[in-house]
Simulated scan of single mutants.
Amino acid sequence: MRPLVFALLALLLTGCQINPYTFQPDWTGTSWFTAGKEDAMNGASVKSNETLADNFNDPDVNRSEYLRGYADGQKRICTEDFVYAWGLSGKIFPASCDTAENADLLRKSWQKGMDEGLRASRLN
């Protein structure tokens, strides 16, 4: 019984030890390229500087980096296969593809996927 008490006491005391630097944030600033890329890949439209500053709590918005990242994200998702898969899964057409140069073709691919997804869900 006595070894059990000592073991529990030791466990309790080691569990209470706190490292003060464990949860200290490491602020490196906002990666505006990544923010733009994520917005495009999530299907969101381009955000204004005011919205970006509010969302990231950073008033120094680098608009050119954000737009460069947005364009990179658009290249990745604004393809016929990708928007077809979005339609097949029942997701709305990504707003980031509305400004793509082949937006009409992309919307047709998305609609085809949406129609097939609805047909498949009716069969189940």
Rank of each mutant, 00 (worst) to 15 (best):
F23I: 03
K108T: 14
R68S: 13
I92C: 06
E38M: 05
L88S: 08
A44N: 12
G29W: 13
G36C: 15
L106R: 06
Q74L: 00
W32V: 09
N19F: 02
A103Q: 15
C16R: 03
F82D: 10
E50T: 14
T99A: 11
D104C: 10
N55E: 13
G73A: 06
G43F: 04
R2C: 07
V5T: 13
F93A: 04
L11N: 03
P94H: 11
D26N: 08
M41R: 14
T79V: 06
G113F: 05
N62S: 02
L13N: 05
N62E: 05
E38I: 11
A120I: 12
K37E: 14
D81T: 11
G113P: 03
A100P: 02
N124G: 14
Y70P: 00
L106N: 09
G73I: 01
L9F: 15
C78P: 05
L88K: 13
T14M: 15
Q17P: 02
C78A: 08
Y66W: 03
P59H: 01
I18L: 04
R119T: 09
E50P: 01
A103H: 04
D54K: 02
T30S: 12
K112D: 14
T28E: 11
F82V: 13
P20A: 04
S96C: 09
C97M: 01
Y70E: 04
T28I: 13
A40K: 04
F93D: 00
E116P: 00
A35F: 05
D115N: 14
F6S: 15
A44R: 07
F82W: 12
D26K: 00
K108Y: 09
A95K: 10
S64W: 00
L8T: 09
W32D: 06
D60Y: 07
C16L: 15
N57Y: 06
E101F: 10
T51G: 06
E38A: 01
E65L: 09
E116Y: 10
D58P: 00
V61C: 03
Y66I: 08
R68Y: 01
V61T: 03
N42M: 11
A103F: 10
L105G: 12
M41C: 07
L4F: 15
L105D: 11
E50Q: 12
D54W: 01
R76N: 15
W110F: 07
Q111T: 14
R68M: 06
K91I: 02
G90I: 15
D72R: 13
S109V: 11
A53W: 01
K75Y: 01
V83K: 10
W32G: 11
M1G: 13
A40M: 03
A120E: 14
Q17G: 04
E50G: 07
F6M: 15
Y66V: 05
G117K: 11
